[in-house]
């Protein structure tokens, strides 16, 4: 097990390096630091000196990957790649364009993102499984047929409409919850109602349809038939045999996203003005703050890879057939 995890960790390094290389080439090769400087200094009478000063202030006045004028190790270390991309490996995210430390920002904004994402995930899982298991129970009837139709219709609606409708209904018409905003602590609970509810409904169609498919795929298998042949009732077949087997793909599909929950949801947080990492990212994109975007890309990949490893571990826990040696 330990050996397996070590090997997975080693395998993660080339992938993260690849991620790094992609972002590096996007941010430093496709558009050069000069482009960035011009963009930030505006169009009006920019001199070469001003550009150089901007680059120096933001640490962009180095060569890309090889510093020919330096000696020894500095030839490689005193470059944009080493200073801006490789440092991410040490979780040193550097500074945003306005000079704030990105690392501090990330730590502060993780909380609100999780406050939305975790209830969303847990309640969602419970609701989606219950609904899809009900549809499976009524398979072949009109309840199932119409249920699937509704699910397909629901997944054909853009998430933005759910948010807008949720804000309008709960916030404006019924005054059940604030339209947007966030508050730390228990008192902030009311701010979470709408985003969590909206997230739940927005994901309902797609998830229910997918889970139902997983259930139906399992229900056609031989072991279900042989469970029935030994006189088990439908409830015992569904709960004891079907659910356990179908949960394997469902759970492992969920586990992979757990680490990325930290990243928050871009549009939910932005619409509801929640000071999480999602709105942080979207603000950075709109302000074209490349340092933040770069940091978030790297963080996202890191968390995703962590999610993959967690998935493997969760397989061992739920599926007796899988061993990691």
């Amino acid at each position: 097990m330990t050996r397996y995890l070590l090997r997975r960790l080693l395998y993660a390094i080339p992938i993260l390096l690849g991620v790094n290389l992609i972002t590096f080439s996007l941010f430093f090769v496709v558009n050069t630091p000069d482009d960035m400087a011009y963009k930030h200094l505006g169009d009006k009478r920019v001199t070469v000196e001003m550009v150089d000063k901007w680059k120096k202030d933001h640490g962009y006045d180095r060569p890309l990957i090889y510093a020919a004028d330096r000696g020894g190790f500095a030839r490689f270390s005193d470059t944009l790649f080493a200073q801006h991309s490789l440092k991410l490996f040490l979780l040193d995210f550097g500074r945003a364009d306005d000079g704030r430390s990105i690392g501090t920002d990330i730590r502060q904004r993780m909380g609100p993102s999780l406050a939305i994402a975790i209830p969303n995930l847990l309640v969602g899982l419970l609701v989606y499984i219950t609904v899809s298991l009900t549809l499976t129970f009524f398979r072949g009837t009109y309840i199932d047929f119409n249920g699937v139709l509704i699910a397909v219709a629901m997944m054909s609606i853009s998430a933005m409409f759910y948010i807008i409708a949720g804000q309008f209904l709960l916030g404006k018409l019924l005054h059940l919850a604030p339209i947007s905003g966030y508050q730390h602590g228990i008192a902030g609970f009311r701010f979470l109602i709408t985003p969590v509810l909206v997230g739940l409904i927005a994901g309902l169609g797609g998830s229910v349809r997918w889970y139902r498919t997983l259930f139906l795929e399992e229900i056609e298998k031989d072991y279900i038939r042989s469970a029935r042949a030994r006189g088990l009732g439908e409830a015992a077949v569904l709960w004891r045999h079907l659910l356990r087997n179908a949960l394997i793909p469902i759970l492992t599909g969920v586990v992979v996203v757990i680490p990325t929950l930290f990243m928050g949801s871009l549009i939910t947080e932005s619409f509801f003005s929640i000071p999480g990492l999602g709105s942080y990212t979207i603000d950075a994109i709109r302000a074209q703050d490349f340092a933040i975007v770069r940091a978030m890309v790297f963080l996202g990949s890191l968390l995703y890879i962590a999610g993959l490893m967690l998935t493997d571990l969760s397989y061992v826990m739920v599926d007796p057939r899988v061993r990691l040696e």
């Binding site: 992938i15 993260l16 991620v19 992609i22 972002t23 996007l26 941010f27 990325t260 990243m263 871009l266 990212t281 994109i285 975007v293 770069r294 978030m296 890309v297 996202g300 990949s301 995703y304 890879i305 993959l308």
Partner: peptide
């Protein structure tokens, strides 16, 4: 492994 929206945005 790069979150889709972020990669597209970048």
């Amino acid at each position: 492994s790069i979150p889709g929206v972020l990669l597209i945005a970048a």
